[in-house]
Simulated scan of single mutants.
Amino acid sequence: MGRAPDAGHPAALVPRHLVPLGGRGPEDVVADRRGGVLTGLEDGRILRVERPGAAGDPGVRVLAETGGRPLGLELLRDETLLVCDAERGLLRVGLGDGVVRVLADSVAGEPLRFCSNVVSLADGTVCFTVSSRVHPLARWIGDLVEHSGTGRLLSLAPGAGEPRVLLDGLQFANGLAVSGDGTFLVVAETGARRLTRYWLAGPGQGRSETFLDDLPGLPDNLWRAPGGPIWVALAGPRTAALDLLHRRGPAVRRAAARIAVRAPFRPPGTTGVLAVDDAGRVLHHLQARRSRFRMVTSVCEAGGRLVLGSIGEPGLAVCDLPGTAG
């Protein structure tokens, strides 16, 4: 178990250019093996950005439309895409023909109303998160304020008819990543500002524990390349008001949530990302203050750069990797 670094000493997150997408809300970004980046927009389109590092002509193509709201993505070896759709459930999308197939839309008779992020294991099992069983995507801020603890980690085995629940009671379950040796999952609990480890193998199989606690912001999507660190998007900085509210009773939190979902929301100008290894050590903490690109919900490496996604912005932000410039 580890603790995050002092939030007052991050390195600079250096922006280079923006990639306009002709639509809003590229909530998740994943890199492919050719240096491109895949993302999904609020209008249901799945896009590929061919050259995210090119400021002039990034080459944006539409690959498919889910008919819902795509969030977390996982690219498979056969060039199909797993998609957590907040409206339709867990999907599999053919990137060559654009065909969309529903893999799961309920568990134990309950609709999957807020699928969030997804990974595939070596044996073909798909693991994915549900952020909330109380609030849908349109009222996501209500769950963070209420601190409902209704997030879940689910798995769908090859040939299984419906998912099974691996973990329940998570605080806004969000991003997922697999350890380098495949023995555990790392789950982002946005509402608790922590990363949680779920053991897939070994003496602790089926158990969970804190992996990294007291993060300097709200962890959202996770991403890693083979042999690389886990990149953690921080959707917003830590706020004392939210920490204080989470220590109040359920009735107070529910009342505050009802107000929050009706109030206008302006994302803060502080954005950041972390890079974490499989021992829970923070390798990099990058931050930008007064950023014009707000509420970073995803991050990946592509073309020698960091590419950031956001649930609210009309494009992607391309930034320097640590230790590079220009």
Rank of each mutant, 00 (worst) to 15 (best):
68 G>M: 01
68 G>K: 02
69 R>H: 08
70 P>D: 06
71 L>Q: 04
72 G>C: 05
72 G>L: 08
72 G>M: 05
74 E>C: 14
74 E>I: 02
75 L>H: 01
76 L>M: 12
77 R>G: 10
78 D>E: 15
80 T>A: 05
81 L>N: 09
82 L>D: 07
82 L>C: 11
83 V>F: 15
84 C>Q: 06
84 C>W: 02
84 C>L: 01
85 D>T: 07
86 A>D: 03
86 A>P: 00
86 A>S: 15
87 E>W: 04
87 E>V: 09
87 E>M: 04
87 E>K: 08
88 R>Q: 12
88 R>V: 02
89 G>F: 02
89 G>R: 00
91 L>P: 04
91 L>K: 05
92 R>H: 04
93 V>T: 08
93 V>M: 09
94 G>H: 12
94 G>Q: 07
95 L>K: 01
95 L>M: 01
96 G>H: 10
96 G>E: 12
96 G>T: 11
96 G>D: 14
96 G>S: 13
97 D>S: 10
97 D>N: 12
97 D>P: 05
97 D>T: 13
98 G>E: 09
98 G>F: 06
99 V>W: 03
100 V>W: 11
100 V>C: 08
100 V>T: 04
103 L>E: 12
103 L>M: 02
103 L>H: 14
104 A>L: 00
104 A>T: 02
105 D>W: 00
105 D>R: 09
106 S>A: 07
106 S>L: 01
106 S>P: 00
106 S>C: 06
107 V>M: 01
108 A>N: 14
108 A>R: 11
108 A>Y: 01
109 G>K: 07
109 G>H: 07
110 E>I: 04
111 P>I: 08
111 P>Q: 09
112 L>T: 08
112 L>Q: 08
113 R>N: 05
114 F>A: 01
114 F>M: 00
115 C>G: 04
116 S>L: 06
117 N>G: 02
117 N>I: 00
118 V>Y: 14
119 V>I: 14
119 V>R: 15
120 S>E: 13
120 S>G: 13
121 L>I: 10
122 A>D: 15
122 A>T: 08
122 A>R: 12
122 A>K: 15
122 A>V: 11
123 D>W: 10
124 G>R: 02
125 T>W: 08
126 V>E: 00
128 F>C: 11
129 T>Q: 12
129 T>A: 11
130 V>M: 05
131 S>L: 09
131 S>P: 11
131 S>D: 08
131 S>I: 05
134 V>S: 15
134 V>E: 14
135 H>M: 03
135 H>I: 00
137 L>D: 05
137 L>N: 07
138 A>H: 11
138 A>Q: 06
139 R>A: 11
139 R>S: 06
142 G>E: 15
143 D>K: 01
143 D>P: 01
143 D>A: 06
143 D>I: 03
144 L>A: 12
144 L>D: 15
144 L>M: 14
146 E>N: 04
147 H>Y: 13
147 H>W: 09
148 S>Q: 09
148 S>E: 14
148 S>L: 11
149 G>E: 13
149 G>K: 15
149 G>L: 13
150 T>C: 07
150 T>M: 10
150 T>K: 11
150 T>S: 15
150 T>Q: 06
151 G>R: 10
151 G>Y: 07
152 R>A: 13
152 R>Y: 02
154 L>G: 10
155 S>D: 05
156 L>C: 12
157 A>N: 05
158 P>Q: 13
158 P>M: 11
159 G>R: 14
159 G>W: 14
159 G>D: 12
159 G>K: 14
